[in-house]
Design a protein around this nucleic acid. Structure first.
Lengths: 312, 312
DNA sequence: GCCAATCCATGCAATCATGCATAGCATCCC
DNA sequence: GGGATGCTATGCATGATTGCATGGATTGGC
């Protein structure tokens, strides 16, 4: 089967190829070194050695950094393919990994990262002390295909076929403000009473306004004098009486310093999905964390299993 | 362009992946080591380290050798893709032979052009008949930046940053004359014996005199009754007994019609550099010729690789 | 049953690669 | 124009990797 495969063609130093790839993608040796957790001189020497080895000048040394030559531009395409294959190797390896100990990376919104994950991760530390946990708190959807995280907590069903998702809970969100703030407003009762109210804004402001208006509100940008892209900051602002904030009920209802702005309005209901890459689902470690999250999130959110049917 | 690609997923040791691939394909560490030109323990340790790194047992150690586990069987598929990409990298770097065709221009001193290059260029004709060769025989340094030639053979390290040089050999030169001429002089033994001798001059006569006097001679312009700027003519004059000439030992020592004037004096030693423009170094054609010259010049000159260290 | 061949694992010395600290340089901003 | 900040290149000491030599073990053949 393997009569006489010639391995000399691949006998150049593959780590140098990796150094070249990351340097090309990051644009400078220093940035690449930071990304890889290596020293800059090391990377520089590896790139130089690869140029020597292949007999190709890959980069033009310019003061701003390194710039790909035409030859380098040609080669980086092939090396990129190598890197993508390497990513699949790593993905499959984690999936095959029979040891629980290791690193795992979870991405979730800032609110979930701050209020939902900590008690669960404390449990995880007890159950499996050998697992190193990294939490990527981000309100933008991270790409699991590129392995930006192993497990994601999201509020929508994953669309990509290589991702598998599990609907684990229902979450609810409502408008919150301090009791003082509401008293000053005269205890609003209907969305109409909020037409002149001060809200605290988030990123994607127009999208938020459209969403609320679709629910019967009549708001515009002038209602949002204060704005932040950070949801935790947003929440703290609401708690300090700076305006009306939007947040999950499991937080707001338990916060003695906050009250629902419109107690008679039904909260917004949305699903909570756990998402992981198919390859990773076979990993004992990923499996363990995934199952723990699936078990604990519903109880922490006080989610009724019956309610999940509405999102199917 | 893409904000923050996460490279941790590819940060495992790629060389270990290569070790794993070749071992899996060849069926044993020993065979893989032979194929890669490495030692068997090295490869064994790399595979073990990869297993450690990925947390996956790749091979079952059986008496006959190594056998892939099911996990390894899964992983080898992905690593094979990596290897194939590596092959394309190497291919793109090495270049296909059909793109080699074209014109190339080499500049060298007259002596080298006449005595050193011909046998090498004959080889080149055999290897790559599609390459048209131009030899610029010149004792003045041609400007590679202005593309006066593609490759230069020089006796000094290139100073301009856009030129890259490779120290390929050590050359030696000595004073030569015909045996008859020496007998007539009474067989000189020391530089002092040559104070009244007839030398054959070259261009830059004063520079040559200074150089020789720095080596213990006591010469002046009146020792140079005959002078020519052409080194080949210079050499032929020496061969015809017109005086003492200076020339490379690899020529003089093999010439039955010539003998060293001072056999006990150490020859002048100087480095042989191959020089090319950085940009041209990426050309497959230039590379091919460059490498051929780098390989053949040392053996033609009988240069000891150890001697090169003196010029570093 | 023994010898030869082949395989993997380990000890050890030399080599190579790495990281740190630093120098050299260009650029940007005040 | 000068200080701050980004980059790459180099010297040097340390630590990791390599190759060689060797040991232990199994298979196959005579």
């Amino acid at each position: 089967m393997h009569d006489c495969m010639d391995w000399r063609n691949v006998s150049f130093d593959w780590n140098r190829a990796r150094a070249f790839l990351v340097t090309a993608e990051e644009g400078s040796l220093s940035a690449a070194a930071r990304a890889l957790g290596m020293a800059q001189p090391t990377l520089g020497r590896q790139v130089t050695a690869l140029e020597e080895e292949l007999g190709v000048t890959l980069f033009e040394r310019v003061p701003r950094g390194l710039e790909l030559t035409t030859a380098g531009l040609d080669l980086v395409e092939h090396v990129r393919a190598m890197g993508e294959a390497a990513g699949r190797v790593s993905m499959a390896a984690t999936g095959q990994s029979d040891t629980v100990d290791g690193q795992i990376s979870i991405t979730a919104s800032e609110i979930y990262s701050a209020y939902l994950l900590p008690p669960i991760l404390a449990q995880l530390r007890d159950i499996a002390p050998g697992i190193d946990i990294e939490v990527v708190a981000s309100n933008t959807v991270r790409d699991l295909k590129r392995r930006e995280a192993d497990i994601a907590i999201r509020n929508a069903r994953p669309t990509q076929p290589e991702l598998i998702g599990k609907l684990v809970a229902e979450d609810r969100a409502a408008l919150y403000a301090t009791p003082d703030f509401l008293e000053q407003m005269g205890q609003p009762q209907t969305p109409d009473d909020l037409r002149e109210a001060d809200f605290i804004g988030l990123e994607n402001l127009d999208q938020l306004i459209d969403g609320l208006n679709a629910g019967g509100y009549e708001l515009s940008r002038r209602n949002f004098a204060i704005q932040t892209e950070n949801h935790l900051v947003h929440w703290q602002m609401a708690r300090h009486g700076l305006g009306i904030g939007i947040g999950p009920c499991h937080l707001g209802d338990r916060d003695p310093g906050l009250a629902r702005v419109l107690p008679n309005e039904e909260p917004i209901r949305f699903p909570v999905w756990l998402v992981a890459h198919r390859e990773l689902q076979t990993s004992r470690r990923v499996r363990l964390v995934f199952d723990l999250l699936a078990k604990e999130i519903p109880s922490l959110l006080g989610s009724d299993p019956e309610a999940l049917k509405d999102f199917a």
